[in-house]
Design a protein around this nucleic acid. Sequence first.
DNA 1: AACATTTCTGACTATAGCGTCAATTAAGGT
DNA 2: ACCTTAATTGACGCTATAGTCAGAAATGTT
Lengths: 197, 197
Amino acid sequence: MARPSAVAQRRREILEATCEVVAERGFRDLRIADVAKVAGYSTGTVHYYFDSKEDLLKDAFRFQYDQSLGRRDGHFEEDDDPVARLRKLADGYLPISAAAVRSWRVWLEFWVSAVGDRSLGEVNEVYYGDWRQTVIETTKAGIDLGLIAVGDPVAFADAFVGMLDGLAIQVLIGSKHMTVERMQATCNAFIDSVAIR
Amino acid sequence: MARPSAVAQRRREILEATCEVVAERGFRDLRIADVAKVAGYSTGTVHYYFDSKEDLLKDAFRFQYDQSLGRRDGHFEEDDDPVARLRKLADGYLPISAAAVRSWRVWLEFWVSAVGDRSLGEVNEVYYGDWRQTVIETTKAGIDLGLIAVGDPVAFADAFVGMLDGLAIQVLIGSKHMTVERMQATCNAFIDSVAIR
DNA sequence: AACATTTCTGACTATAGCGTCAATTAAGGT
DNA sequence: ACCTTAATTGACGCTATAGTCAGAAATGTT
């Protein structure tokens, strides 16, 4: 071996740049040339590490999901009760920080591309299922502790995650009706309506 | 005048075809050639009625919105009470019929394109604002009649429309967790939680 | 029929961008 | 110092497609 492999590092750099460009220009408008520019390499280098644009995009989604997972779990405190955890989950997903906005944009692009693309749908199944499960379990824990009053925790969790997604879209579009503040208020009102105080 | 104008009719045909193609291929992957083929004309004809691809897409969104407005209002009965109306609104938006699925796909594509495109955002502002207002007013009517118990009708309406959007996305992707049936059940559970029986 | 006007066509131009590749540079190893 | 392999470059080939345009066809009017 003549040199130590820089493959893992380079791939990370390029995936990072790809997420940046997806958030800015979208999935389908993404140009390899933009990714190369942001990463600080030539287009040839991007193709050296990724066979095709499609490969690059799929890997970029996985990369970005793993990153936001880390952000999410970092928000919890050991002694948060389930209601506090629901609030933190909602807060953590507000498209308020640059990183959160970027994540949302990448997700949105991903979802739209996943409509009618079976293989992307399977990636969503795993990652979205995981997130949904977190909310379901937090809700159940709240019920067990007598802090949350809902008939069906799964229906509540589905409504909750669905609401977050729908509201985030309008925030991202820049709707005057749905600002980040209104989204937060709406989420809190939603949690308040089932929290036993 | 040498001939009666066929402009309105042709534009409708072409917009219809455009929605078809957007639902199939997406906003950005749409090719004028595909629209022409579906409409049964040449690419030149599409350009004869629409100056640019962007114009075509904007008009197509408006067209499809007006169509689904018609579908929505057709669902109401004169004597429906507000709670029944909310249920019908949710039912009418379930991505179950081919027409509803197509509408949702067009919306999704449009929203994603509107992220970071100010002029598309303004179109959304008008149409989405109208839809949101319908839900707000229906909720207020329910409160006035003592049929709905919510603290803040606007927060409730925002949560409701947001939930619909978020759930629909997962249904469209084909998630095993979120089928049309589950979406309907989730919506009904949500309405039940505020309906005074 | 002759004409005017609208509608329609499809070839053509121009441009954009993916992926290839031959050449170059960087960085060990011996 | 020299060799070997990895990494990188950027020009280029190729394909796709938006939009133009000159003319042809259709459809009325007189």
